[in-house]
Write a protein that binds this DNA or RNA. Structure first.
Lengths: 179, 179
DNA sequence: CGCGACATGTAAGCAGTTACATGATTAT
DNA sequence: ATAATCATGTAACTGCTTACATGTCGCG
């Protein structure tokens, strides 16, 4: 499905970036819905150049450090917009190793199950708190179509996702603790 | 991480199964948290036999139809139990193409965005309704440690997951529709 | 007899991770 | 100095999907 291709094109729609800049985005803005290592990004950039969807310009500092600044081409923009506007069916349910473990839980002792559930709970509660703290940077709710709306709505989605995971873990725990 | 390996071992902890039986499980009980095609399952079974974690016995019907019944070995059981009881850190956030599209939403017209959101909403509402209907087969809430508790808790988790996705889509829609 | 479900496998290729490899710049 | 971060790349491998390939069984 070449999703990484479209993530890169989407980022370059905003402004020219280096491979490293793109890599950094995966640790920040994109972390709630996509990931990629630099070893996947650099070859993909090369491929996109060959396909004529992006171009680059080599920048050299006073020293000798080299950096490639990538820019999206008109063809790249067209390709991205077509992909972005297409309606796609709901994705198949995401894989989840902890749910898998819960499914097999009858092979775990109740005491240990409680420990595992509490360990997950702590981590998801921390994550949720972190996400909630991140909302303060949006002084007021961004309007659709603005630069920050994408960040905002994705952040709200991540908070809801964590909330439902926490609710589920608490529900499971309640079964182990009652009686 | 060899997750497929442990899914197969976990299934065989319950009862002996053929490759096809296992394949069918991915369309039913496991669909809310894992997936695998038969082209991945058959080679994995071969590998597990070679590793001594499972064994098989060939069954032939009166005709000439051949079927392999796989059984977990003692070594396989040990391996599975160790994996199942290990505490693992929270997984990195799952990839989600629709969230990605939302992130880039400023490149989509508001009218079309409403259409895309409503299309997703319909699909997730249908899915949720289907899951809720599936709960009727649990006449009363299964207790932890029983056979059906795994199915039950995973189903509850899937319903909560759909609910939070629906809430998020509705939140996004509300921004496009207000004013 | 034909169709859908049962049943098993392989091959090619794409997507993604881990590891290998190198070097420059900046802050301590 | 040295460690962290900036910066770019390749190689080997694992995981997964799509397509190719074959044959049986039960139902209508």
């Amino acid at each position: 499905m070449r999703t990484l291709k479209y993530v890169i094109l989407g980022l370059l729609m905003n402004k020219p970036m280096s491979g490293y800049d793109i890599y950094k985005e995966f640790e920040e803005a994109l972390v709630e819905f996509w990931s990629a290592k630099h070893s996947q990004i650099y070859p993909e950039l090369k491929k996109l150049v060959k396909e004529g969807l992006i171009e680059y310009e080599t920048q050299v500092t006073e020293g000798k450090m080299v950096k490639k600044l990538y820019t999206i081409t008109e063809e790249g923009k067209k390709d991205f917009i077509i992909w972005l506007n297409s309606d796609v069916p709901m994705e198949s349910t995401p894989k989840d190793v902890f749910r898998l473990r819960m499914y097999f839980s009858k092979n775990i002792s109740k005491e240990h199950m409680v420990e595992l559930l509490e360990s997950q709970l702590m981590q998801h509660r921390d994550r949720r708190q972190y996400l909630i703290k991140s909302t303060v940077k949006f002084e007021e709710k961004p309007q659709p179509g603005t630069d920050s709306f994408g960040d905002y709505i994705v952040l709200q989605g991540a908070i809801l996702r964590e909330k439902s995971y926490i609710d589920w873990l608490e529900l499971a725990l309640s079964y182990y603790k009652e009686r």
